[in-house]
Design a protein around this nucleic acid. Structure first.
Lengths: 156, 156
DNA sequence: GTGCAACTTCAAGTTCACTTGAAGTCAAGC
DNA sequence: GCTTGACTTCAAGTGAACTTGAAGTTGCAC
């Protein structure tokens, strides 16, 4: 009678499908990234749409969003159904800008490295890896992995 | 580039020049990423070559290395002098491969997103974002901000 | 109706890359 | 010689993203 095996997923099934650990799924739920229904006994049961949300979250992480930012981005998409083309296009385009910016950053670094190979490099005065005039600054607490600010105002 | 009495830097000077906090510099030293001499009174004094090492470390972080990996990479470069072209080229080329791989990952994601815009997407059966057959996904513990991201979306 | 894997909560632990704070010491300008 | 700011060590804290462990409960197959 219960075709429910098809229509709601246990946390273990969701873990298997999504590739995340059950602990991670509970953690995501605690953060409000995903949601579940409960059985009479208190166990979680997930709609299949949650798989979509998780795919979204993983992609968000790949473009460098924190889970908190991912949650904010998810707020623009419907919780339980497939987003329509308009809803999705809006999000996707924002991400494309992000991705493009990241690619540009990496290409800039690659260019600097290439220059360095040519110049027998890391010279204090000349090296462009060493003196990146172009730096996209950031200095938030948390995520501080960005070769960011350009200090050294006095070059003596 | 005068070799005055100031050919050694205090930790504060190094911090100002490198853009890192003094606490970070002590931490790097604790990890064995950089080294210092000490005054009679026990204060750190840094050779200017340390600035180069720091530039290297920051760039390493940008390409997604952990500090531990950066230390390993630094082992291929001389501690106190400018690396010669051969030494440097070897390292730089390894990094270029890394950078290229990262760019490729991002481009793959962007392609998937583009496809999704067209298809009114995130369909469970069709979506390529949702079903990335190519999971070259990095998700080891540590180093999760693999791509040099900036949390502020549109600031350049 | 029983056995047991899969679930539950809650607290605490982990890793990375640092920062903060306390308590004390050094270096240098006056 | 004094003062002051820059330094010292060591311990503990931070935050993101989870994981681990303990102790107990549920659901389903047999």
């Amino acid at each position: 009678m219960s075709l429910t095996a098809h229509d709601r997923l246990t946390i273990g099934e969701l873990a298997a499908r999504s590739g995340l650990a059950t602990s991670a799924l509970r953690y995501y739920e605690e953060l409000g990234l995903i949601h579940s229904e409960r059985t009479a006994g208190g166990q979680r049961r997930y709609k299949r749409a949650v798989l979509r949300r998780i795919a979204f979250i993983r992609a968000a992480q790949q473009v460098g969003l924190t889970l908190d930012e991912a949650r904010a981005a998810l707020a623009d998409l419907p919780a339980d159904r497939t987003p329509n083309a308009t809803e999705w296009a809006q999000v996707a385009r924002a991400w494309q800008r992000r991705i493009d910016a990241q690619i540009a950053d990496l290409e800039r670094l690659r260019t600097r490295l290439t220059g360095c190979i040519g110049c027998g490099c890391l010279s204090l005065t000349r090296c462009r890896l060493y003196n990146p005039a172009d730096t996209a600054a950031q200095t938030g607490p948390g995520a501080r992995y960005l070769l960011g600010e350009d200090p050294a105002p006095e070059q003596r």
